[in-house]
Design a protein around this nucleic acid. Structure first.
Lengths: 265, 265
DNA sequence: GCCATTTTTTGACGACTTGTCAGTTCTTGA
DNA sequence: TCAAGAACTGACAAGTCGTCAAAAAATGGC
């Protein structure tokens, strides 16, 4: 009796979860192909072959779907951060690994930035469901905590000492700002080429190096071959992701400066 | 005859321009009070006491109005940058002045970030008018050029030398990223306090200092009192703006760490 | 196998928006 | 004073979101 009770229930459960994925996948495709302004509920319903009413049982409204998309990718970002943080090496290499994770993340999920942009805009949040909001916040905290953890490790390991009035969180904020800003600009600016930036991705790493040198986080870039660390991290920690990106971009590998090994700089 | 020809025309002209301002002001208010999702053409029309049709003679569509708002504020940002760049002092002080200009800008025009966020999002641009697009791009180029100019001055003045493979534009991009990222996060994040950041504005300046130290842009922060430079720039270059902000925030001056002189750090 | 009850799904519909355009009002200048 | 053109208007077509009564499907007791 217990099984006949439980099995149908869990099948139902799985069906519901599966449909949630269907909806999000359809939404992601829609968003990628037609953009936010064309993106509408009727066509998502059409695509997944369920009615609009059913979608509204999963999501409070249109915005909630976008939040769902963001939560999905943020989850993946947090995973990448976890793996980066677990790299066995100098603390500064571990932070470099986080930088690489960010970079890989934005290359693997470029739509994420479109969504995040909308997310961060006017009066969006109040329309979404509390539950999903918390989910996203959780991922954000997790990522933030991972970075702050590495910083604390660096301090206790004697590789970094912050001015007395400065907290590890503030350094994390600086790194976050730079990374978020750079990636947003890269993803959305119409005219970086025109402005004279051939390879903004690479510039980000350069700025990172200099920022950490400014904090005197040892080993300093002049005393250590971080290009080699980069290769090691990519092959050890992100082999799968790196392969994916190399495939994606192999046709213009040399132009992006990442399809090849970092030594070329 | 010529006067009777010209005067009415220019009055008409002025009326039209005046109305454009009316529309943008109403839109700005709407956006600030109800957010993007409630923001609609009918209520703007109601507020300015012209019909919707008339609004559509000025702007191609809703998005074009937002672009108009952005162009208005970007113009102001470019002005602040111009003034910052004209500060007579060390090149690194001039870059600090740019940093202060950014900070003042976001404090004076917080709605701008809401708009910019929407601007940078999905399939927005294709709906707007080419003319206004160019206007905005122009402001962006101008700001970018000002910063790059200061960097070139620093290089030719012997205060900074970039690695051979790195261009001034790449450094500008790094500064832009950090500033844009930080301000966006500050303006839109729900939970900075919760995460342990009491005064993110101040953290930005700290990161800036460290980044420039990393580039060995002299005088290094350890050899120069940049807090004092900050005060000098604020009083010499941005006296009016600074007063405005102090008034705005005087009731929680100590909390923001900017209502008072920077020495307190 | 049958039917009453509960759960799930559906899509027509109300409410609201955007952008248009035919018709009206205002302005200009002889 | 009035004709011609410019400017303005608001009803309207087209399209969207989110709801909800009714239909369909699943469940479970007999």
């Amino acid at each position: 009796m217990s099984t006949s009770h439980i099995i149908p229930k869990s099948r139902k459960q799985r069906e519901i979860e599966h449909r949630e994925h269907l909806i999000l996948d359809a939404a992601r495709r829609q968003l990628a192909s037609v953009g936010y302004f064309q993106f509408n509920m009727d066509s998502i319903a059409g695509e997944i072959e369920y009615s609009k009413g059913t979608i509204y049982q999963h999501f409070k409204n249109k915005e909630d779907i976008l939040l769902g998309l963001a939560a999905q990718t943020m989850e993946k970002r947090a995973e990448l951060f976890d793996r980066a943080s677990a790299f066995r090496g100098e603390s500064r290499e571990r932070i470099l690994a986080i930088g690489l994770a960010s970079d890989l993340f934005m290359r693997l999920y470029p739509e994420h930035f479109r969504v995040e942009q909308i997310l961060r805009s006017a009066s969006f949040w109040e329309r979404t469901s509390e539950e999903r909001r918390q989910l996203l916040k959780g991922c954000e905290f997790r990522c933030f905590g991972i970075v702050t953890g590495i910083i604390r490790d660096a301090i206790s390991g004697g590789h970094l000492s912050l001015p007395a009035e400065m907290s590890p969180e503030e350094l994390t904020f600086g790194l976050w700002s730079m990374s978020y800003g750079a990636h947003t600009i890269i993803a959305t600016s119409q005219s970086l080429e025109e402005i004279g930036l051939k390879n903004p991705h690479e510039s980000v790493f350069f700025s990172f190096d200099k920022l950490l040198d400014g904090y005197r986080w040892t080993p300093l870039s002049q005393d250590w071959d971080y290009d080699q660390s980069k290769v090691r991290i990519l092959t050890d920690v992100f082999p799968h992701e790196w392969t994916l990106i190399q495939k994606q971009q192999s046709f213009h590998a040399r132009a992006t400066g990442m399809g090849n090994s970092p030594q070329e700089r």
